[in-house]
Design a protein around this nucleic acid. Structure first.
Lengths: 146, 146
DNA sequence: CTTGAATGGGTATTTATAATACCTATTAAC
DNA sequence: GTTAATAGGTATTATAAATACCCATTCAAG
C-alpha cells in the first residue's frame, strides 16, 4: 500500500502554499524548498491547476497559489486527485475486466470499502490543518527577523 | 495508493484455499489457477508460511494449507503481512529520517490514521467471508458432477 | 533404499513504471 | 522588445516489481 512520490511532493507543496496563502510561489522556489527539479514539480502544479485546486499565472511576478481557502480543501480530495489513475488493485483499473473470478469475487467489495474508509478518514482534515509556516508567526508572539 | 500484484495474488490464493480448507494445494496447482508461474507463487507461499498463516509440507502428497480456520484470519492481517516493507510514504520506511520538515509535519499523523482506518475496515471481514469454492456446494442443493 | 513428487531458497533477468531531465512554446509585466 | 515565468511535450534514467531458472532439501510410497 503505497502512495507515489508524486503525491507525497504534491502534498508537501500544498502544505507550504497553505502557510502563506496570500502570495504566489514560483515553481523554482517550491522546487528548491522540496529538493527536487523544477520540471518535475511543474508536472504536479499543472495537474493540480487543471483540477482547479490551485491557480497559476505566467510571466513576471507570476506563480501558483491556492484557488480556494485552505480550510475548504480536504485531504482526501487532494489524494484522490494526485493518485488518479493508480488503482488499488489491477482489476479496479480501466482495463480490469480480465479477472477469472470476477462475479464470484467477494474481495472487491471489501477493498472498495476499505479504500473509502481511508479517504473518508483523510477528509476529516483540511489543508489548513496541516499548513506549514516558514516562521512561527503566532499572534502575540514577538518574532525576531532572520 | 496501490497494492502490489504480490498482495493481490496472495489474497486470491488464500481465497481459493479457504474454499477447500481440508486439503493441501500444491504450488503448481494454485499457480495454474491464478495464471502465474509456480516460482513466483512459491515466494508468496513461503512468505505466508513464515508468518504462520499457512502450513506447507514437502514430498509426495505435500502442499500448502491454512494453518488456522479461515474465520479466524482477518483480511487486514493478511494485507499487513503481504504489504510488509512497503510503506505508505517514503518517510514511513526504515530509512525515512531524512525529511526536512519532520517535527513540524502535521501530515504524518493524518496519514497514519487513514492507514489504520483502511486496515481496520478490512479487519471487519475474515477470509471465510471471501472464500472461493470451485463448485457450488450449498447444503440442500443437488450438485451435478462435471 | 531408491525414486519421484513436492517445497525451500537463492540468483539472475526481464519488464514496467516512476522519476528526472531537457527543450520549446506561450504569456504577461515592465 | 526583453525578461520572467508557466505550459507542455518528449526523451532518458533509475528503481522496483515481476518472472524465470537452478539446485538443494525433504518426504512418501513402493
Amino acid at each position: 500500500m503505497r502512495l507515489t512520490s508524486f503525491t507525497d511532493f504534491g502534498l508537501r507543496m500544498l502544505m507550504r502554499m497553505a502557510g502563506d496563502p496570500s502570495r504566489a510561489f514560483t515553481s523554482a522556489e517550491l522546487a528548491g524548498n522540496l529538493g527536487l527539479s523544477r520540471n518535475h514539480l511543474a508536472k504536479i502544479i499543472q495537474h493540480l491547476a487543471r483540477a482547479g485546486l490551485i491557480e497559476t499565472r505566467r510571466g513576471g511576478g507570476g506563480g501558483a497559489m491556492l484557488a480556494r481557502p485552505a480550510a475548504e480543501i480536504r485531504l482526501g480530495q487532494i489524494i484522490r486527485l494526485l493518485e488518479e489513475g493508480r488503482p488499488l488493485v489491477e482489476c479496479f483499473g480501466s482495463g480490469g475486466g480480465t479477472c477469472s473470478i470476477d462475479a464470484r469475487c467477494r474481495l472487491k467489495t471489501r477493498l472498495r470499502s476499505a479504500e473509502a474508509a481511508f479517504l473518508d478518514d483523510l477528509d476529516r482534515s483540511t489543508l489548513a490543518d496541516i499548513a506549514l509556516t516558514p516562521l512561527e508567526k503566532t499572534p502575540g508572539t514577538l518574532v525576531v527577523p532572520q
